[in-house]
């Protein structure tokens, strides 16, 4: 019973924070709402017997990534979004996409509800840090190495992207360049 209460508490909190994130125009409010979603999801991972993933979620998402996002928001001094002057059909596209995804969600919900229940092993060890670490460094060693290389590439790419490069002042010599604007 307590598990159900906790699930609905954190699920409601996650959905409310997600809606608030999309609703708010100020990017800083959106970021703080997103941190709420991450914390609620971390609590849900704990109820799913995955403490390692829950702690990693808080460390990586709520800690590192959101600090980076808030840092960029404050660095760029972003104000609120301007009123919408975008193509109007995007409203219809967004609404249709949302309805399709929700219909799919409820279809999956009823499909899974009808199948016989999978038995949950109460003393399952799959979420323990030790079993994750063992699987990570034996069976899934190659993917972990690839993730390491990918993180290195991301660091180098970010540095190259943000670095102010000394650009030679090039003159455009091709004809027809003046007509365009």
């Amino acid at each position: 019973m307590a598990g159900t209460v906790l699930f609905f508490l954190f699920a409601g909190f996650a959905i409310a924070c997600a809606v608030s994130m999309v609703y708010h125009r100020n990017p800083l409010y959106s970021a703080i709402s997103l941190i709420g979603v991450f914390l609620a999801l971390a609590a849900l991972y704990l109820t799913l017997a995955a403490p390692f993933i829950a702690i990693t979620q808080i460390l990586v998402y709520a800690g590192a990534i959101m600090v980076l996002v808030v840092f960029v928001i404050m660095l760029l001094n972003l104000d609120e979004d301007k009123p919408l002057n975008r193509l109007k059909y995007l409203y219809a596209v967004g609404g249709g996409l949302g309805l399709a995804l929700l219909a799919q969600t409820f279809f999956i919900f009823y499909a899974v509800l009808k199948t016989p229940k999978a038995e949950v092993d109460p003393n399952m060890t799959a979420g323990r840090t030790m079993s994750i670490g063992r699987a990570m460094y034996t069976e899934y060693l190659l993917p972990v190495e690839i993730v390491g290389v990918m993180l290195l590439m991301a660091i180098i790419g970010a540095v190259i992207l943000v670095r102010k490069m000394e650009q030679p002042h090039l003159e455009l010599v091709s004809e027809g360049e003046d007509e365009k604007e």
């Binding site: 598990g3 699930f7 699920a11 849900l44 799913l48 929700l102």
Partner: peptide, 15 residues
């Protein structure tokens, strides 16, 4: 007592 798999899938789909 825990909610079933379908509840988590529904929450995931809504998010």
């Amino acid at each position: 007592m825990q909610p079933g798999l379908e509840s988590y899938l529904a929450l995931s789909g809504i998010l």
